[in-house]
Amino acid sequence: MKKTKFTILGGDLRNVELAYLLKMDGNEVEVYGFDKLDLYLNQQEKLHESIFTSDVIVGPLPISEDSKMLNAPFFTGNIQINDILYLLSRKQVFTAGKISNEFQNRARDMGLNSIDYFDREEMQALNAVPTAEGAIQVAMENMDITLHSSNALILGYGRIGKTLSRMLYGLGANVYVEARDYGDLAWIENFKYKPVHLKDLEHYLSNIDVIFNTIPHVILDEYLLSRVNKDIVIINIASSPGGIDLEVAKELGLKVISAKGLPGKVAPVTAARIIKDTVYNILDELEK
């Protein structure tokens, strides 16, 4: 790929590391939205200057927590999503993770090149590994027993569920996996895990030591939460609203841990490499 001028716009440690990786590849790199950090990078002071002069603008994952402000935890100010839209030109490429449909529709209406790198299969497949490792780390830090010989339940058998199941099984856990699709349940059984259909979930909960939720909508409601053992650790990996009724869990005194954005917290360099490779793939496809 030809050398390119990048602007890294906000984000967590993944985007910090991404900036360094892109620079090491010989690209020209500027950053904006990191004034809380002392970086060995060219930090622009104005948003419009950081965008106007670049070929590719890379935003964070997720791009926003509220669909209004850019996700920029290392920035003292606020960056409005709408401002980014109006500063972009048709000759540039803008890419970020978990871009809202509203943003994408407006970008398309304006003739802008806006691409969600988190929608890419290679991104999600590779990102599942640091996510699963991070979830296991969180479990180890919060459990009073070993994962080995524990009863671990995974809600959902998508990319993260598949990766997490394999890792937990390798650690010697008794792995239970919930799914709705009978094809998924058959594969779960093939891999020697214990398949659990959603309709039967209530019958297993009292015997589970740790739950890993990968489903982004509520599964563990009041009825199901009342059936878990009181010493359980519940780890939510999914994006909001997550799979747990948090108010009920709090009333019941259950230990629920929010563990979103794990790759950026536990393995930012690996996560940055995955984003970089995915961005390169996007640019390569656009050049063809």
Rank of each mutant, 00 (worst) to 15 (best):
N207M: 10
H148V: 05
V248K: 15
L153D: 11
S149F: 11
A173K: 05
L126Q: 13
N105I: 14
V58D: 01
R14L: 01
L283Q: 04
G11V: 02
G242I: 00
S89P: 02
L47H: 01
K288R: 14
K91M: 03
E17K: 13
F94S: 01
N151L: 08
R180L: 11
S89I: 04
G59C: 02
L224T: 08
H48Y: 14
P268I: 00
L13I: 02
L155E: 09
V177M: 11
N82Q: 12
V177N: 12
F212T: 09
G172Q: 00
L224E: 06
L88K: 05
G59K: 03
G172V: 01
V269E: 10
Y193G: 09
F34H: 02
T146N: 15
V233D: 11
D25M: 08
K91L: 03
P62I: 04
L61D: 01
T214M: 06
E30R: 12
H203E: 11
D245W: 06
A179L: 11
D221E: 07
A107C: 14
N190F: 15
F103A: 13
P263F: 02
S100R: 13
L252H: 07
V266S: 01
F74T: 00
A128H: 06
I57P: 03
Q44I: 08
S240R: 14
S206L: 06
G156V: 13
L225S: 10
L246Y: 14
K255Y: 05
E141V: 04
Y40K: 14
N229H: 12
L286Y: 05
E122N: 07
E178T: 13
V58R: 02
K5P: 00
V138D: 07
K2M: 10
S114Y: 12
I234C: 09
R273P: 00
A272Y: 02
Y169A: 12
Q124S: 14
Y223H: 15
N281P: 06
L153V: 10
G183N: 15
I79L: 01
E45P: 10
V218M: 09
L147P: 04
N281L: 12
K199A: 15
M1G: 10
L164R: 06
T53Q: 15
Y204N: 03
F6E: 00
T76S: 13
L254I: 06
G261W: 04
I8Y: 00
K199D: 15
V93R: 01
L21Q: 12
V269M: 09
Q92I: 03
A238N: 03
R159T: 10
D119W: 08
L147D: 06
I145D: 05
A238V: 02
E141C: 04
A125R: 15
L168C: 04
V56F: 02
H197A: 13
G59W: 03
A267E: 01
D231S: 14
S89M: 05
P195F: 09
L252W: 07
V29E: 01
N142V: 09
Q80W: 11
P241N: 07
A173S: 15
E133P: 00
G10W: 03
K36W: 01
K91H: 05
H197L: 10
Y32W: 02
